[in-house]
Simulated scan of single mutants.
Amino acid sequence: MRDLPLPTLPYTDLRPTGARRSLLTPSAPARLDVAWARTEDDVRQAQRLRYDVFVNEMGARLSTPRGAPAGHDIDVFDPYCEHLLVRAVIDGEQPGPVIGTYRVLTPAAAIRAGGLYSETEFDLTRLRSLRSRMVELGRSCVHPDYRSGGAIMALWGALAEFMLRNELDTMIGCASVSMCDGGHFAASLWHQLQKTHLAAIEWQVRPRLPLPVDELRTDLAVEAPPLIKGYLRCGARILGRPAWDPDFNTADLPMMMRISDLPARYRKHFLEK
C-alpha cells in the first residue's frame, strides 16, 4: 500500500489563513497599488514574499535552480511568467514592499517554457483545445497582515483587465490545500466539492501523483479556504481529483475559470469598470 502523508499538525490546529489576527494598525495603508513587474528587483520582491509564505509559514521544501539567491522561491517557470504585484501605499508615500502576488503564464510563453507548471502535476490532454486562449495562474500568495480581502480583489481586478486586453478567456491553476493534518481535510473537501463544482467530463484531468483520498477521511465537516471559496463564487470548476505535492505539503486541486462563466455581479465588478 502506498505511504500516506504524515501529519505535522492535529486537525484541530488547522485554521484558514484568513482567520489569522490582523496586525494592521490605525496608520495602515489607505490604498493598494497593483502593477506588473518591470524589473528583476520587482520579481525578486515577489519571490521573497513567496518564500516567506510557502517556506516559513507553510513548511514547503523548495528545489531552487543552481545559483538562486537564498530566501527566494524560484523555479524554472519564473523567467517565462508575467508577475503581478500588489504593494501597500503607507502613509501616502511611495508604494512599499510587495504584499501580494500572482504569476501568469500566457499561451505563447507556455510554448517557450515547454509546457505549464500544472502539467508537472496533471495530465491536461483534455484541455488542449483551450490552450490558444488559456493562461495559467500560479504562486498566488498574500502577506498574512493583508488577508482581509482587499489585496486579492485588487489582484483579481488587474487579472480581469489583462484577460480582456489580450483576448484570453480561460484561466487554470492549482489551488493548494494544506496537508498539515495528513490530508484528511483535503480529502473531505474534495469529497464535498465534487458533488457541486466538478467540471464536465470533457474538461476533467488526471493527477500524476493522486492524493490517496480513498485511504483518508472524507466525512469531515470542512469549509473551503477563502481563496478557493472566492474562485468558486466566480464560477470556477474543479477539474478532477487532487494531486499530492510532497514538497509543498499540499493537496492541489486543478481548477478552471472561464470568463463566460463569471456570474453577473462579478462580471459587472471586474469587467465593466
Rank of each mutant, 00 (worst) to 15 (best):
V104Y: 03
V104G: 04
V104S: 04
T106S: 07
T106L: 01
P107K: 15
A108W: 14
A109W: 05
A110L: 01
I111M: 00
L116D: 02
L116R: 07
Y117T: 07
Y117I: 04
S118N: 09
E119M: 06
E121C: 11
F122D: 04
L124T: 12
L124R: 07
L124P: 03
L124H: 02
R128M: 00
S129T: 10
L130D: 03
L130Q: 00
L130G: 00
S132G: 00
S132E: 02
S132L: 01
G138W: 10
G138M: 07
S140Q: 07
S140Y: 13
C141Y: 07
V142A: 12
H143Q: 11
P144C: 14
P144G: 09
D145H: 13
R147W: 10
G149Q: 14
G149N: 12
A151Y: 08
A151M: 13
A151H: 12
M153T: 15
M153A: 15
A154C: 11
A154S: 14
A154D: 08
L155T: 09
W156M: 07
G157Q: 10
A158Q: 08
A158F: 08
A158E: 12
A158S: 14
L159R: 12
A160C: 14
A160D: 15
M163R: 05
L164R: 11
R165G: 09
N166H: 04
L168P: 05
T170K: 04
M171K: 07
M171G: 08
D181V: 14
D181G: 12
D181Q: 11
G183V: 15
F185R: 11
A186S: 10
S188N: 04
S188I: 07
L189H: 12
W190N: 11
H197C: 03
H197P: 04
